[in-house]
Amino acid sequence: MKPFTYEKPRTPAEAAAATARHPGAKFIAGGTNLLDLMKLEIEAPGHLIDVNGLGFDQIEATPEGGLGIGALVRNTDLAADERVRRDYAVLSRALLAGASGQLRNAATTAGNLLQRTRCPYFYDTNQPCNKRQPGTGCGAIGGVNRQHAILGSSTACIATHPSDMAVAMRVLDATIQTVRADGATRRIPIADFYRLPGDTPNVENTLQPGELITHVTLPKPVGGAHVYYKVRDRSSYAFALVSVAAIVQRDGTGRVALGGVAHMPWRIEAAEAELPQGAKAVATKLLAGAKPTEHNAFKVPLVERTLAAALLEAKG
């Protein structure tokens, strides 16, 4: 690990001042992704700003009838919240399908959204990787790329976003609330939060340097049957090959988003119009323009089958 200095601010204003003083500083929340990467020197911030003293650890009803989730709410507590279990079950299910009990106790809402890819070439500092070191190339293209993206990838990067929670947040139309170093706040709809890799796979979202996530808000509940269906190499404690977050209403209409297939949760509203026609019709629209790699062509039929399984489960 590269040396760093450490501070734990008590207020968002202090945190903002700290980011202004230390360009290149990083926030640390649960630490379960950042420390992992710092040990490998994939991340090497010169200064760490511990956000665990800032509060933001409550889940509160919003005036609009939704839920405001503090950035520091632990994954365990979010999954177990009674309102989430009742009204946003897809979110509980996605959280519980990820990581382990120990990790969920430490992992936070903001940290989960911002966790970095699990591409093995990103993790191996002997390999070229445009995400880790822009301009060095992509080891996964032409390499072992079974876990990689089939949608929205570029000639620079074919990585996937590993978060299960983010897929549920996408299908729930969550909004990310932030405060910038200059104190200005903003709300970013999750549809505008993540970026495709393009030529700059190192830029993964629309946050600015030093911008702190304070809350993630959910709109008022939409009802329906909530399903998170995750396909992975073993039945627990593994990242998704393909996952489906679905909310299906009695009349067969609804929403779906895919995980494990792109650099961001993959949702195409036009595909959702096909939901009453069944999984095949939806999958065809979702997979338009799919570009599987040498080793992951299996993900294309797997998307349709996972969708079919999720829709069946939604019927109860």
Partner: peptide, 11 residues
């Protein structure tokens, strides 16, 4: 329960 390898002592 937590993984003590993924948290800093100073935290």
């Amino acid at each position: 329960r937590m993984n003590s390898c993924l948290t800093l002592a100073v935290m």
